[in-house]
């Protein structure tokens, strides 16, 4: 029972991070119909920027060298930084290819991804050494349920993720910008005819998606403080699993991405806890292949017919 509850909590925490990243993939896919491979690197930079911001502010995490609002400051800072980065990536690399075949955009995305990873590795930027994220969030155990001690940091990771998802839900379904995003995703050409500034809306989509990935990067670094070097394959893999979450939930569907993210997190950690801890990636990709075989539109997606 202890093991079950522990796994359930960890799975939910990891799953909510996957969900945050998956939202960025699914929003871009919904509008531009391509896999934004650079998204996993924006997430990676979110984690790295968190470390750098904490370092610049002189917060080491030891003997309470940081104020209470440190986490909030870092998360807002990295969301702004990565949001800007997302804007620049879209402007510089993707917008010139708006009318090009999708495969070209996909290759460009891989190019951007490789560029971010490898230039991040340069000695005068982030370097090739893994770093340790300072503990900015309270780590003490709050209470214990059935032998499982619930740490404050775990609850904060889950809480912040869900708060951000609720915020996104409000942006998409409650504001004019969200309405424009949904219109562009539904039909770009008609949206343009209705007077929606399509390019600006697409830019905003990238900003919002990248900011969410940055937040996920910060939360990931908080939960797992060992930050791998920028070009380490784990980052691409985490991003891939988040993309799998988006596909499993139904690509282009926001609630699908959230549900898919949680599901992937739970599948991965329950598999690791009860089957074999070494094969956690295998479970996720097996799930992907099963979904593609039996329900290619995803769990919450609608089947669409490709038209001319």
């Amino acid at each position: 029972m202890t093991k079950f509850l522990q796994t359930l909590m960890d799975g939910t925490a990891v799953g909510s991070l996957y969900a945050l990243i998956a939202l960025g993939y699914t929003m871009v896919y919904g509008i531009l119909r391509f896999i934004n491979f650079a998204h996993s690197d924006v997430f990676m930079l979110g984690a790295w920027f968190s470390y750098e911001v904490a370092k610049i502010m002189g917060w080491t995490g030891q003997d309470q060298s940081h104020p209470v609002w440190a986490s909030a400051f870092v998360i807002v800072a990295v969301m702004v930084a990565c949001g800007t980065l997302g804007f620049v990536i879209e402007r510089g690399a993707y917008r010139p290819l708006r009318s090009a075949p999708r495969i070209n955009v996909l290759i460009t995305a891989i190019g951007v991804s490789l560029f971010l990873e490898n230039s991040g590795q340069l000695p005068f930027l982030l370097g090739t050494q893994p770093q340790r994220m300072p503990t900015l969030m309270p780590e003490h155990a709050l209470f214990a349920v059935a032998g499982v001690s619930v740490r404050a940091v775990d609850l904060l990771v889950i809480g912040i993720s869900f708060a951000l998802m609720a915020l996104l839900e409000w942006i998409i379904y409650g504001t004019k910008l969200g309405l424009a995003m949904r219109a562009v995703s539904y039909d770009t050409k008609v949206a343009a005819l209705m007077g929606i500034p399509v390019d600006r809306v697409i830019s905003m989509t990238f900003v919002v998606g990248s900011a969410l990935a940055a937040a996920a990067g910060f939360l990931y670094a908080t939960k797992y403080p060992g930050i791998n070097q920028p070009a380490h394959p784990t980052w691409v893999l985490l991003g891939l699993k988040a993309f799998v979450a988006a596909v499993v939930g139904g690509i282009g569907n926001l609630r699908g991405a959230m549900a898919g993210g949680l599901m992937i997190g739970l599948v991965e950690l329950f598999g690791a806890a009860y089957l074999s801890p070494h094969l956690r990636d295998v479970y996720v990709f097996t799930l992907l292949i099963l979904v593609l075989l039996f329900r290619p539109e995803g769990l919450l997606g609608k089947a669409t017919i490709e038209k001319v």
Binding site: I35, F243, V244, F285, L288
Partner: peptide, 17 residues
């Protein structure tokens, strides 16, 4: 069988497996 770009993700995943 599906849209082309799923192949990218599946092949990457397969490589990892």
């Amino acid at each position: 069988r599906l849209r082309g770009d799923y192949l990218a993700i599946v092949t990457l995943g397969f490589g990892e497996i």
